[in-house]
Design a protein around this nucleic acid. Structure first.
Lengths: 136, 136
DNA sequence: ACAATAGTTTAGAATTAGTCTAAATCTATA
DNA sequence: TATAGATTTAGACTAATTCTAAACTATTGT
């Protein structure tokens, strides 16, 4: 068996469909939704179905190849950056930007102490106005 | 006009329905969903409709009387605590707990600097295991 | 007090994101 | 090359929320 990527997920494989979904995400600067990924993937693989996009996204997520970003508003977005990081969302135009907060390690400690939870991860979201919208 | 609460929203009022929704949220320790609020409100006002619960929640939110909490998973939850605070979610049982991080002020500064956004608010979510689930 | 008007509620239809299902298709290996 | 297991497909389905239009309620000007 030619396994194109060892994902640690057993007998599963990086199929054409999954690879197409992965390439869409990797080729974009932004954070596309499942629907946007579906539209783009269809240009490569015209018969790919919506369900396969979702299946692929789940697979890629579990394999650690992409990252899912969920805010309450609308659809999940997918991110090629899989290392821990934070997000800023523009209240005017909706733009979503990645950034990293170096104090994340202390934060997770402080949050765990306050909440009495055993910490697994912290997610921090800044809402505000992006540089472009600020100019206007 | 007898305005029962000055919400700063102009001609709008705290109607029986809106008040029922508010009382449900204020009477609970937990963070009910719209559906849970609907079930509870119906005990007071048997004819209240689902749409009115949603309309009321939007109104109360805009008036600053309740706070909406959205995670990607499932329905929004509503919180009687309207001051800035953070949340911890248990990965095992789904329990949602409020806590406050005193370093929020510094955080928002750091996040604004990194992202180059003009900050409006920061939301921090800890995921982990709650004290109850840890015991098991 | 009363009509006009503006705001609110209701029930159900519509929308959106995502999951499920079952049949068809692939793929790796014996 | 047959087979078993994994994957894909199209469409049905579900859950959360919003929309719509008619009915209702409250406030304002006369």
């Amino acid at each position: 068996m030619v396994r194109q990527a060892d994902t640690g997920l057993g007998e599963e494989r990086l199929t054409r469909q999954r690879d197409a979904v992965l390439q869409v995400i990797r080729s974009r600067e932004d954070h596309p939704t499942a629907n946007e990924i579906f539209q783009a993937a269809r240009e490569q693989l015209p018969t790919i179905s919506y369900a396969t996009v979702y299946n692929s996204l789940r697979y890629l997520k579990e394999a650690g190849l992409v990252h899912e970003i969920k805010f309450g508003d609308g659809a999940s977005r997918y991110d090629r950056e899989t290392d821990r990081h934070d997000h800023a969302i523009c209240n005017e135009c909706g733009k979503l930007v990645d950034f990293d907060l170096p104090q994340a390690a202390e934060l997770i400690q402080a949050a765990a102490r306050k909440s009495k939870f055993q910490a697994a991860s912290v997610h921090l979201t800044l809402r505000g106005i992006c540089p472009d919208c600020r100019k206007r």
